[in-house]
Design a protein around this nucleic acid. Structure first.
Lengths: 367, 367
DNA sequence: TTGAAAGCGCTAACAG
DNA sequence: CTGTTAGCGCTTTCAA
């Protein structure tokens, strides 16, 4: 098998033109006589010819590829990001090379290094920790780079696209306190991750301010199954909290799984706010109240920034910070206040109502 | 920005050796004196040199890339496939280029054509219909190709990896009838897709044989949200079936969403069997009974086949057919028989029990 | 072992 | 508009 593929030269010969002409009809960089173009196209089709990207790229120095690195290809958040990036890439005729760091700092470096070998036009990376990968830090001056999601905006060496994690924590925390909850658990993935710490900070600070209580943060990791076990174990040795705020879509799954296994009723016994907004969250009797990340917008901005950099922009690193919102559905219930406990009806808010960011006054915002 | 990257020549100059030597230390194809190797590595690090894959590939003709085409990057089934392929690719030091056809036959052809431009070592494709893409049909003799999932095994021109769709339908159908269900709805995505037709055929035939009834198949498409609307609409104008068998993970989501919106109790009012097995399916009070596809195995076999072909094997197309199993959980309830209706307890089977394929006697199996 | 040299298939001047 | 030609950065003989 694998007979040698046709080359420009063969097509040129068959069409009776020069290789430059063939190149031109394929690249469209120079006009070509209609008659010749037809001949070339015919010859190309007959040989099922297709420009060799390696050769093309080698010569032109232009790649039309972007590398995309994420921490986990089994996490819907990242794959939905990739999905959207792929759409925009196609529109601008780029190809996408994906790589997963599997949340491993070392693998991350090596995957990135490999990606660089393609001489891509740019790289979109979701680092697995908040330390910017050394490879990128070194290369950032030479290759357009956009860092997404797991980034400390302030210290970033490249363009970043993140959500306002502190605010996300605040929104959920405020809502829970307003609903009368005091005994709140924060289901974090890992406090080693800066955005997660921010979400925790946001929730803790507002809950403390409003109710004087301190929520408990527990770490469930990045795997739903293991997270469920950890949470189940935690539940066994602690009194049931009145509400759980899950800080990622994976911990949402973990918390829900553990709660389901222990036959805890939602929201009757425990209210829960999830993170991200996927179809499965509303495909349930008790649809999930959740913090929505604007994935579309995140992807769009990341791509836009990358294109700007590819276009030659060399200004200072640009941080984009997006706002989240709370999608109120049925998994949170209002507690009778102050003697909590008896109100059995769910939230008064209309299912489907969205509470938008209202924390505009918070200082230290970067824009 | 974008200062020119270091080249072999520069590294060679800096290390005081020839470019061939540098190439050898990087490729490891020929032994190099330890002392020289050290010098080269030092120089390379100083210049943060990295082999240019385009050049390397152009010269050697070897690519170490595989193209992966799927119909939808927002469908967990396909992304989990990609995730597993990426792992194996890394192990064998291949990179992965992903492309989505978005269920569009035309886009599929063009994405495939583009993929071919990379001169990949091989292609793993999930076609969006059961017609093998023309590009692939033409190239299959020249480039290792494995077709996964949406394939008509019998007519395949390349290696295929699929599940036994007919059997999957039978397993679910048999279980439902045994549980006393007669009024069964099949939530299909699209009957244009061969595997879906097979699942329907399997379910219909066994249900008919066992109960004399004909289940109703309805098409919900490949988008959960739209599917939910279609199903909700259907529910409004038909009496509630006693059971729904969803034929894909997306229609599972669609059916569940519609049922939830109409406040239908599962399994009290309607039993449901889902397809695929993802975490969200058990992260619910009423965990979902579902047909499990062995995604790991599918990915493993696809990769294995591809490697065999890359290795030069030119034997006849090899079809791999994997068995599914039913993961019994709580969304299916036993109906009092023959006067159905009153038994309120869920399935007698232990939650978590797995019913393995038992249709070994079915003829016309390809192996 | 190491080095010199010949291209891989294509693009981009440049000349016609 | 079309053709000629000089490499892009690397791998791979072939000699030394």
């Amino acid at each position: 098998m694998t007979r040698k593929r046709a080359t420009l030269t063969e097509v040129a010969k068959r069409a009776g033109v020069s290789i430059a002409t063939v190149s031109n009809v394929f690249s469209g960089r120079k006009p070509v006589n209609d008659e010749l173009k037809k001949r070339v196209e015919k010859a190309a089709k007959e040989l099922s010819f297709q420009i060799d990207r390696a050769a093309s790229q080698l010569k032109s120095g232009k790649a039309r590829v972007v590398g995309v690195l994420v921490p986990d290809l089994d996490d819907t958040f990242f794959t939905s990001l990739i999905s959207r990036i792929e759409v925009m890439a196609l529109k601008d005729s780029y190809d996408v090379i994906v790589a997963s760091s599997r949340d491993d700092k070392q693998l991350e470096e090596s995957r990135l290094q490999t990606l660089l070998g393609w001489r891509p036009s740019g790289i979109i990376a979701v680092p697995c920790s908040d330390i910017v990968p050394a490879v990128l830090a070194r290369e950032v001056a030479h290759i357009p780079t956009v860092l997404v999601d797991r980034v400390i905006t302030q210290s970033a060496v490249a363009d970043t696209v993140t959500i306002d994690n502190f605010e996300a924590g605040e929104i959920a925390g405020r809502y829970l306190v307003e609903m009368g909850h005091k005994d709140i658990v924060l289901a974090a993935s890992s406090l080693d991750i800066a955005p997660i710490r921010e979400r925790v900070r946001g929730a803790v600070s507002i809950i403390h301010k409003m109710s004087g209580r301190e929520p408990t943060a527990i770490e469930l990791g990045s795997n739903a199954e293991r997270g469920a076990e950890i949470f189940a174990h935690w539940l066994e040795r602690h009194p049931l909290p009145s509400a759980v705020f899950a800080l990622t879509n994976v911990t949402t799954l973990a918390a829900l799984t553990a709660l389901a296994r222990q036959r805890v009723d939602i929201p009757e016994q425990v209210s829960i706010i999830g993170f991200d907004d996927y179809t499965w969250m509303s495909a349930r009797k008790t649809a999930l109240t959740a913090i929505r990340q604007p994935v579309d917008e995140i992807a769009r901005l990341a791509w836009e920034r990358l294109q700007i950099r590819i276009g030659g922009d060399v200004s200072e690193p640009h941080p984009s910070i997006l706002n989240t919102s709370l999608k109120v559905r049925e998994s949170t219930r209002r507690l009778a206040d102050p003697s909590r406990g008896e109100g059995l009806k769910p939230a008064e808010e209309q299912p489907g109502e969205t509470i938008d960011n209202a924390a505009k006054e918070r200082p230290n915002r970067i824009h």
